[in-house]
Simulated assay, not measured.
Amino acid sequence: MAKPEVVVLDYGSGNVHSAVRALERVGAQVTLTRDTQQVLDADGLVVPGVGAFAAVMEALTSIDAPRWIGRRVAGGRPVLGICVGHQILFERGVEHGIAAEGMGEWPGEVTALPQDVVVPHMGWNTVRPARDSVLFDGIEDERFYFVHSYAVQEWGFDQTVDAMSAPKVTWSHHGADFIAAVENGPLAATQFHPEKSGDAGMQLLKNWIESL
């Protein structure tokens, strides 16, 4: 059986090689590239992200990545965002009083975590997975590795309109509740780093790979 082909988007974000190795470990054939056709044709696309929201959006825009991501999502082709790659899928981010537009795939604003707790939120934390989550199947009670000072702390969709098709939202807590992951058809994302989350993170990536 052929391995699923996964592209890790190469747009200048740091620490992408750990994501490449983790995906290879769970059975994917992985390419690190920014080639348009490879990005569009892959079975799965992973969008990593480290640093500031505005800088990541600027780097992605410079290689036309938001259009590629949008085309994949419109065509039902899976995309997984990680860390700031998760944050930029929301409407906007506000860091140090400066707002930057995100991709707007989901409603919500990335804002600073409460200042009465230690930031950045760095280390292991539990999550509260959404019901029937694919990503967290079998690892609902595990801990995952976070490194961030900003997060989406309110969810804008009305989950009661159509519970069957509504996005699955997983929460965590550090000073306040914040969104730790979202699963929405072909589009999924995690605020934490699965590639740094030990066996639980490997299982999450395996769950995603097996869903492609």
Rank of each mutant, 00 (worst) to 15 (best):
L135Q: 05
S149M: 07
Q159P: 07
A189Y: 03
L187G: 04
G108I: 02
H174N: 09
H121I: 11
R92T: 08
V161C: 06
G76I: 09
T126W: 08
F192S: 10
V47K: 12
R25A: 09
E5L: 13
W208L: 10
A151W: 08
I139W: 07
Q87M: 02
G104C: 06
A112V: 13
A59W: 02
G49T: 08
V119L: 15
R67P: 03
V26K: 15
I88S: 01
H86W: 02
D177W: 06
P66L: 06
G12W: 04
V46G: 01
R67Y: 05
D35E: 12
C83M: 10
A163N: 05
W68C: 11
E140I: 11
G75N: 14
H86Q: 04
H17A: 09
G185A: 08
A54Q: 14
L23N: 11
E58Y: 07
D116W: 13
T31Y: 08
A200Y: 06
E140W: 04
W155E: 13
A2N: 14
P129D: 07
G85A: 02
A112H: 14
V56R: 01
I88M: 02
G108C: 09
Q87F: 00
V118H: 15
R25S: 15
W155I: 05
H86L: 01
F178S: 02
H86C: 02
P129E: 08
Y145A: 10
